[in-house]
Every structure is written in C-alpha cells, then in structure tokens.
Computed example of a mutant assay.
Amino acid sequence: MKSIFIKIATCIIIGILTVSILYGLSDKLTHQKNSFYRYFPPHPAVYNKAIDLKFNSYYFAGVSRDKVYLSNLTAPLHLLEIDPITADTNHYTIKINDKNPLKFSSSARVSILSPYFYISDGITPRILRGTLGQWTAKRIMYDSAYFNDAKPIGAKSFVLRSISAKTNENILGKEFSVKPHVFLKDKLLEKQGDGIFSADGILRYNKDLSKIIYLYHYRNEYMVIDTSLNLLHKGHTIDTNTIAKVKIASIESNHTKTISEPPVVINKNSYTYGNYLFVHSGLMAKNERKETFQETSVIDVYNIISDTYEFSIYIYPYRKQKLKRFIITDKYLMGIHNEYLVIYDLNPKWFKELKPKSKINQDILSR
C-alpha cells in the first residue's frame, strides 16, 4: 500500500508541475493552423456581471439549485456560496466530525452533488460527506483506494481515477460504502505508448444523464460511460489528432516517468451539463485569426447524445485575465478569470438541450 501511495503522490505532483509548465511551452504548437473549421454563432454567451473573489486560488466545487459553490486550493475546508442572480455571497468553514484530528493534503477537493457536499483526498486516502447548509462532514467510505481524481456519482459512491498496482498505469474505478468497496475496470482507459500521460484526461459526471464523461487531454476523443463503468460509446472532438503526441522520459532516481517535450494539448478543460459537453480547446482552427485565438479562450460545444459538434464560443479576457476554469448551469456559463468570477448568460436559441428528455437520452445512450 505504501508503494501505491508514493506512486499516486508522485503522479499528482509531477502532473501539476508538468501540465502548468507545458501549457505555456506548447504555445507555438497549439497556435499553428489546423485542418478543421469552427462555427461561431452570434452571441451564444453574453456578459452579465463579474464578482471580485479577492484570491486567484478558487475553483468550482459545483452547483445546487440557484447557487454556485467555490472552494479554495489553499484552504480545503473553505466554501464560498454565490447567488448568480443577486451576486450575494456567503462564506462557510466546513467542520469535521471525527474522533481524530484530520489533516488534508494539497490534493483535497470539495465536490457538490446535491443534497450533499463531499471532501475527497486521494493522498490520504479519505472521502467525507456532509449535507448542504449544515457544513459538517464525516467519513462515509472504507477509504481503501488511493486516487488522483474522484467525482461523486451517488450518495455513497464515487468514480475514481487511480494507478493500477499491476500495471502502474492510469485506471478508472468505482468506490462505494459496501463491500468490496472498490472496483477497478481494466482497459477502460486506452493507452497509446505509456499508460500514464497518454491516458491523462478530465473526469466529469453528468447528473442529468447519470453518465460519466472522460475526455483525453492529448487526443481528440472522449468516452461516455455508465455508472457501472461500462463503456457506452466514444465521441470525438473536431480536430484530427487521434494519437497523443507525448514524449516520455524516465527518472531513474525514483523510478518514475515525466514528459520530456511540450505535448500538443488538445483539450485543456471541460464541463458537461444537459446533453452537452463543453470543451476548452487548445488548438486553433483553420478559419480563425491567430490574434483572436491568442487573446481569447475557445469553448467548443458538443452534443454527447448524437456525438456532433454544435458550435464554438469565444470567451474574452476580463480585466486582462483569461479564462482559467468554468462551469455550466441551465442559464449561465460561469468562468474564473484568476481572482474574478465572470457570469455569462447563455442564449437559449443556441442551447435547446440543456434540460434533456430523459427517456430519449437513455434509449440512445444504451446503444
């Protein structure tokens, strides 16, 4: 178990450092014109308001009804509640109900899946749960698996990305409160060369569809997976990069691997809501101006039911700060621009399937 802990910790640390550095280094590669085109409809997302967060370390924990919740990378037990209509804010400190004092690592994250909030820490490992509005959390899991990402998919179940003890590669799994507690699904993540960086990606849960979405960072592919970890179908982003362009080097001193050259980052970030997958792309299209692409952040919108590209959105900097993180609701695109939360109204003309027809969706996704 100790060796797994070391591998998880090393992967998280190396991952944070390499991704942060290489996003900057790969500028030349991602600003080359590629052989695909984007469609930009008029005004799909319109600026509404901005809120000064005072700090640049906030991230989105999730949404519940008419509120959005942010937590802080440097203060894992802090929650900021925001009403996007009135811009009213409330600050909460999560209390821990445990017989022993608990310390959380820098990888600890807060997630919202109404009516609960969760604290997950893959280094410890540890998962706690509390009820929204009460702000006291306690353990709910057996805490038997180390992980580098986790998303709640039910009251007492999580989808995990971990490191396989057999292959030392990224693997998806599920953790729940009853035996066997952890189920790991081999070969769900498809490696190309190495099984760590080539399979690196963004793990999301779509509550509307009860489906897991995994979007690869370095290739034009995403997977739609059910909550039992069965692959339903694969989708593709509009670029043509089917093979991850990642070069790996070994670090002999600690028997780990790292990225040796700046990779081509296809998909920087994502969020899923309704029938849609929103992708913060790292590549410039053939019909884009280099100056515009460099200045803005491009969000490509996909329909994950029909596996079709819909259109793209330019998100412009706010006070010279580019988009860093984003989240989607049925009315808003909300983005963090360093220390500012910027709220954009979504034009219903272009977003007709933010509230899916569940029966039709389930029939199609079960194919």
Results as ranks from 00 to 15, higher is better:
Met1Pro: 02
Ile6Tyr: 15
Ile6Lys: 14
Ile12His: 10
Ile14Gly: 06
Gly15Gln: 13
Val19Gln: 15
Ser20Gln: 05
Tyr23Leu: 01
Asp27Ile: 13
His31Asp: 13
His31Met: 12
Ser35Val: 02
Phe36Glu: 09
Phe36His: 07
Arg38Gln: 11
Tyr39Asn: 13
Pro42Gly: 05
Tyr47Ser: 11
Tyr47Glu: 07
Asn48Gly: 09
Ile51Pro: 07
Asp52Phe: 03
Lys54Glu: 07
Asn56Thr: 00
Tyr59Phe: 13
Phe60Ala: 07
Asp66Gln: 13
Val68Glu: 00
Thr74Ile: 09
Thr74Phe: 15
Thr74Pro: 00
Leu79Gln: 12
Ile82Asn: 06
Asp83Pro: 02
Ile85Met: 11
Thr86Phe: 01
Ala87Pro: 02
Ala87Lys: 11
Asp88Asn: 10
Lys103Ile: 04
Val110His: 05
Leu113Pro: 03
Phe117Val: 11
Ser120Tyr: 04
Thr124Asn: 15
Thr124Gly: 00
Arg126Thr: 04
Ile127Asn: 14
Leu128Ala: 05
Arg129Met: 05
Thr136Gly: 09
Tyr142Asp: 14
Asp149Leu: 11
Ala150His: 08
Ala150Asn: 08
Pro152Thr: 00
Pro152Leu: 01
Lys156Trp: 00
Arg161Trp: 02
Ser162Arg: 09
Ser164Leu: 03
Asn168Arg: 14
Asn168Gly: 05
Asn170Ala: 05
Leu172Gln: 12
Phe176Gln: 07
Val182Gln: 02
Asp186Asn: 15
Asp186Trp: 08
Leu188Glu: 06
Gly193Thr: 07
Ile196Leu: 13
Ala199Thr: 14
Ala199Ile: 08
Leu209Met: 01
Ser210Gln: 15
Ser210Phe: 09
Lys211Asp: 02
Ile212Pro: 02
Tyr214Gln: 05
Tyr216Phe: 12
Asn220Gln: 08
Met223His: 06
Val224Ile: 04
Ile225Tyr: 02
Asp226Ser: 09
Asp226Lys: 10
Ser228Lys: 01
Leu229Glu: 01
Asn230Gly: 01
Lys234Phe: 06
His236Asn: 08
Ile238Val: 12
Val246Ser: 01
Lys247Val: 12
Ala249His: 00
Ser250Ala: 08
Glu252His: 02
Glu252Tyr: 12
Thr256Asp: 00
Thr258Phe: 05
Tyr273His: 15
Gly274His: 01
Phe278Trp: 06
His280Tyr: 10
Met284Phe: 02
Arg289Met: 13
Gln294Glu: 15
Ile299Phe: 12
Asp300Gln: 12
Tyr302Gly: 10
Asn303His: 06
Ile305His: 08
Ser306His: 01
Phe311Ala: 07
Arg319Gln: 14
Phe326Ile: 10
Ile327Glu: 15
Ile328Tyr: 07
Asp330Gly: 08
Asp330Arg: 12
Tyr332Gln: 14
Met334Ser: 04
Ile336Ser: 06
Ile336Tyr: 14
Asn338Gln: 09
Asn338Met: 12
Asp345Pro: 04
Asp345Trp: 09
Asn347Met: 06
Glu353Pro: 00
Lys355Glu: 14
Lys357Gly: 00
Gln362Asp: 01
Asp363Ser: 09
Ile364Leu: 04
Ile364Arg: 09
Leu365Met: 06
